[in-house]
Design a protein around this nucleic acid. Sequence first.
DNA 1: GGGTAAATGAGGTGGACACCTCATAGAGGG
DNA 2: CCCTCTATGAGGTGTCCACCTCATTTACCC
Lengths: 225, 225
Amino acid sequence: MSQKHSVVICDDHGIVREGIKQVLASNPALEVVGEAANGLEGLALISKLRPDVVVTDITMPEMNGIDMTRELTKEFPDIRVVILSVHSRKTFIMEALKAGARGYVLKDSAGEKLLDAVQAVLDGDSYLDSPVAGHIVDEFVKMPSASEPAAGGGGETLTDRERQILSLVVEGFSNKQIAEKLFLSPKTVDNHRAKIMSKLGRRDVIGLVKYALATGLVDPDTWGR
Amino acid sequence: MSQKHSVVICDDHGIVREGIKQVLASNPALEVVGEAANGLEGLALISKLRPDVVVTDITMPEMNGIDMTRELTKEFPDIRVVILSVHSRKTFIMEALKAGARGYVLKDSAGEKLLDAVQAVLDGDSYLDSPVAGHIVDEFVKMPSASEPAAGGGGETLTDRERQILSLVVEGFSNKQIAEKLFLSPKTVDNHRAKIMSKLGRRDVIGLVKYALATGLVDPDTWGR
DNA sequence: GGGTAAATGAGGTGGACACCTCATAGAGGG
DNA sequence: CCCTCTATGAGGTGTCCACCTCATTTACCC
């Protein structure tokens, strides 16, 4: 008899975490061992707790769910990630899967789908919500043998670090604040920033914000709070 | 004892509805009698079921939660409405209260607050989540006299010129470009800009962009590219 | 092992901007 | 008629940032 499978939940809204917890509770083989409100918190918690599965939102302050997933699967390839998001756009799904997520469920869907997804990734399978699966199929059909899709739309691909810093810039943090947050020199942040702008062909912060909103790096709905 | 109080839930995300239901289930005096995924559905359902309380999101397709509340309280003044939202902006809260909502809880908050809010409105009271209450207090403090503009730094009314310049700033134009466009001295634009920031209590361009998007000064859909 | 890319960091320069005071001129209200 | 609000403009100061070059370390790939 195998013991319970541990789950960590990441979402910036308390009510949503509550909902996920309650949904997962209906499967007695699952145990929620921790919760985090953003990607950075999540990473810290997960590397401490080493859960079997992580259920995470995409749009979160500090660090988004996709960047977190990317870090996570790099360091702990055994941990399965299920993305639970409001976004059904192809770019999100592609990014999430490339980052290493094995499950993708829309928040519109019933709780049962989340349970199925968690079960699937625990079995080593993948699970895509049906509207999501449709988009992915479209994508592969359209792709002949492309080398690099260069997701993010703009032109060049940003590195992990660059995306992370970009999202902090767009949140409104200054170079100095970002440097303190990430334990870097302000000069390093400046350099990353310059690289980002050169890659994206933008000349100011507003251009970066537009890029971030257009590509969904930040959520247009909750960003403007 | 009195019989159970009936509740209808409106939210466009299944998982969130699930969460709300589970939270409310911990109070045995409450019974969720129906769910809707948008305001129109909600209105139809509510006029059929006549629940004691409605718990609703703001952002929903077809009809948003505030418009729904307005219709609702006009037709059925006895039905209490609790808003459950991600938005902590004053404008949302004020609109919701003016529309007739008696409770306002942020999704960031713990589920317990929602239970308290539902209990409060059932008792005929009002309930405002603490960060929300803070904003409302700001609003009333600001009202009696505008003699102290610098102190609060809260939301004040912009003049036409200020709004015009703000929208150009948010579009990404520099002070110099705006000056040329409006046949002004760059210094004048700078002064307006300073006044705007002082009025809105923001310290950088990103703050201005957030304000403009949140208040609809620029169109979130077309702005991003 | 050499090439390439990413991440880190430093130096310097100029420009844009946030923040301050001050001044003037017109519109509107008591 | 004064008083306030708005719009216009100027002066100055300091900070942050965009843009440049250069250097080091790590890592991955052929």
